[in-house]
């Protein structure tokens, strides 16, 4: 069902999520895999400031961001997003993080990503979804491959992190590939 799976559902972010989000985004193991910018500690205040902007944005193509909530405990465990949708070329970049380590490696992230892809392909009418992932984030690469993403480009030494330069993988999946794969699930 739209936005709803067996393990998680995607919903709008609410103010109560922010204190968890601040915690998740201050975890070096999360933020160092998520964002290319040099990590800077965040706070509840900063999250609230971001949230005020989030509430103002009515145009999903300028920044769709959804909370990932567990079905069982109704707990906010992370977010997924599609920033910079390119509606003319029917293409977007997506991203995801599971901030609560309890829920890592158990299929929560994979299902959340599938729900996001269902939405972007079947409701927003996109033709392609891409994502960027650091070469050292092997768990994520494996999980994206399971979801049908293919490595399309390797940005050589494109990311500086942990004192050295690393490759940046650009992965992508086309609508027809996704629908083929979806039949198997």
């Amino acid at each position: 069902m739209l936005f709803s799976g067996e393990l998680v559902r995607l919903r709008s972010i609410i103010e109560d999520d922010l204190k968890y989000a601040a915690g998740y985004l201050n975890d070096p193991e999360i933020i160092l895999l998520l964002d290319d910018d040099a990590p800077i500690p965040t706070s509840l205040e900063k999250q609230k400031e971001w949230f005020a902007e989030y509430l103002k944005e009515k145009d999903i193509s300028k920044g769709l961001e959804l909370a990932i909530e567990t079905v069982k405990e109704r707990k906010y465990i992370g977010s997924c997003f599609a920033h910079h949708m390119d509606l003319k070329n029917r293409h977007t970049l997506v991203g995801i993080f599971i901030g609560d380590r309890e829920y890592l490696g158990k299929g929560y992230g994979t299902e959340a990503m599938m729900l996001l892809m269902d939405y972007l392909f079947d409701e927003v009418n996109l033709n392609k979804i891409s994502l960027d992932v650091f070469s050292f984030n092997e768990r994520a690469i494996r999980s994206y491959e399971k979801l049908g993403f293919k490595v399309e480009a390797i940005g050589r030494e494109a990311v500086f992190r942990f004192g050295g330069y690393h490759d940046l993988y650009a992965m992508g999946i086309l609508r027809e590939e996704y629908h083929e794969l979806r039949k198997k699930f």
């Binding site: 003319k88 070329n89 033709n127 392609k128 480009a153 390797i154 030494e157 992508g172």
Partner: peptide, 24 residues
């Protein structure tokens, strides 16, 4: 050429690939 981004451009009636290139 460090990669081919499939079907990222719609032009003249169909989707085209975009090549990503770099030099160090």
């Amino acid at each position: 050429v460090e990669g081919i981004l499939r079907q990222e451009l719609f032009r003249n009636g169909k989707y085209y690939d975009v090549m990503q290139m770099s030099i160090l």
